[in-house]
C-alpha cells in the first residue's frame, strides 16, 4: 500500500508506542476525510440515495395510489411500460434527446473550435461569457421567446411573408421541440468542447502538416480523436438533460409530444394518480441516465491526451 510511505515518515517515537496509540492514530487519520466528505455524503445519502430507494419501493407496488397502503409487491408497473403505447413514449423521448444531442454537436463544435483556436486570445473569456449568457435567464423565458419566433403570426413568418415566401407551420411540431431544446442545451456542449479543444496540442497539428497531411485530414485524424472525450462528455450531458426535459416539449410540441417526463408528471398529478407506475417510469429514466454516465466514466476518459 502506498500509504506505508506516509506511515514511515511519522516520527520514530510514534511508531514504537503500543498498538493502542496506533489505533488512535488511525482513527485520527479518518477524521480528515469524514469532515471533508461528510456534509456532501450526508446530503447525497438523504436527498438522493434514500429518495431513490423509496421510489424503487413504490415502483414495485402495482398501481399504488397515494391513499393506499402497500399490501403486495410485483413487477406489474414495469411490465406496463412494455406496452406499445408507453414504448412509443420512451422512443419519442430518446429521439428528441438524440436529435438534440446531434444538433448541439453540429452547431456547437465549430463555435467551440473557433473560440478555442481561432478567436483572439484576449477576447476568449469575454466571448465565452457572452455565449453562456443565455443560461442566466430561466429556460422557460427562453422557450417563450421561441414561441414568439415560431408561431404562425410570429417573427420568422413575418420575415418570410415580407420576402414574398409562403408561411410555414413551425410552431407545435417536432422541429420546434428540437430547435428549442438545442438552443437550451447548446451552451453546455460548447463549454465542454471548448475545455477539450483548448487543451489540444497544436504541435501535433504541426507535425501532421509536416508529414504531408492536408488540414482536412489533420482535423479528422488528429483534432477529432483528441477531443473525443470532450465530445462524449458534452454529448452525454446534453442527452441526459434533454431526455428529462419537460418545459420545451410541453410549450413547443404539438398534439403528439408526450415524453417520459410528461408521462411521469401525469402519473403523479394527473387523473389516474398512479404513483406506482409513475415511480416505475422514474426508475427507468434514472437507470437509463445512470447507465449512460457509468459507461462514460468507464470508457469516456480513457487516454484523454491521446499520446501521453
Amino acid at each position: 500500500m502506498s500509504r506505508s510511505a506516509v506511515t514511515d515518515s511519522r516520527p520514530q517515537s510514534q511508531q514504537v508506542k503500543g498498538s493502542g496509540s496506533l489505533l488512535r492514530w488511525r482513527l485520527t487519520r479518518l477524521i480528515g476525510p469524514s469532515v471533508l466528505l461528510g456534509p456532501a455524503g450526508l446530503w447525497l445519502l438523504l436527498l438522493l440515495v434514500v429518495p431513490v430507494l423509496l421510489i424503487l419501493r413504490i415502483s414495485l407496488v402495482p398501481g399504488l395510489r397515494p391513499e393506499q397502503a402497500i399490501t403486495n409487491y410485483g413487477l406489474d408497473n414495469y411490465l406496463q411500460i412494455l406496452q406499445p403505447t408507453y414504448l412509443r413514449v420512451l422512443l419519442r423521448s430518446v429521439t428528441f434527446a438524440s436529435g438534440t444531442t446531434a444538433l448541439c454537436l453540429v452547431v456547437g463544435f465549430p463555435v467551440a473550435y473557433w473560440l478555442a483556436l481561432i478567436a483572439p486570445k484576449r477576447w476568449r473569456n469575454l466571448l465565452l461569457v457572452v455565449f453562456i449568457l443565455p443560461l442566466w435567464t430561466s429556460s422557460l423565458l427562453r422557450t417563450y421567446a421561441w414561441i414568439t419566433l415560431l408561431r404562425t403570426s410570429g417573427v420568422i413568418n413575418l420575415v418570410l411573408s415580407s420576402l414574398g415566401l409562403p408561411e410555414q407551420n413551425l410552431m407545435n411540431t417536432t422541429g420546434a421541440v428540437l430547435v428549442g431544446m438545442t438552443y437550451s442545451f447548446l451552451p453546455y456542449m460548447v463549454l465542454i468542447l471548448y475545455a477539450s479543444l483548448e487543451k489540444l496540442d497544436l504541435r501535433l497539428l504541426e507535425a501532421a502538416a509536416d508529414l504531408g497531411a492536408s488540414p482536412n485530414v489533420a482535423f479528422w485524424k488528429v483534432t477529432v480523436p483528441q477531443t473525443l472525450p470532450g465530445i462524449a462528455a458534452g454529448g452525454l450531458l446534453v442527452f441526459v438533460t434533454s431526455l428529462g426535459d419537460f418545459v420545451v416539449p410541453t410549450l413547443l410540441g404539438g398534439p403528439s409530444s408526450m415524453t417520459i417526463s410528461r408521462l411521469i408528471y401525469n402519473q403523479f398529478l394527473g387523473v389516474s394518480r398512479n404513483w406506482g407506475f409513475g415511480s416505475a417510469l422514474s426508475i427507468v429514466l434514472i437507470s437509463a441516465v445512470s447507465i449512460a454516465i457509468a459507461l462514460l466514466l468507464k470508457y469516456g476518459d480513457r487516454n484523454p491526451d491521446g499520446f501521453s
Binding site: 436527498l47 438522493l48 429518495p51 431513490v52 423509496l54 421510489i55 413504490i58 397515494p66 430561466s138 429556460s139 422557460l140 428529462g244 419537460f246 418545459v247 410541453t250 410549450l251 417526463s261 410528461r262 411521469i264 408528471y265 403523479f268 398529478l269 404513483w275 409513475g278 415511480s279 422514474s282 434514472i286
Partner: peptide
C-alpha cells in the same frame, strides 16, 4: 408552468420523501 416544470424535475425526490 415553471412550477410544473420544476415539480416534474423534482417529482420523484419530493414525492417519495412525502410518502
Amino acid at each position: 408552468l415553471f412550477l410544473q416544470g420544476s415539480a416534474a424535475a423534482i417529482a420523484g425526490v419530493a414525492l417519495s420523501n412525502c410518502r
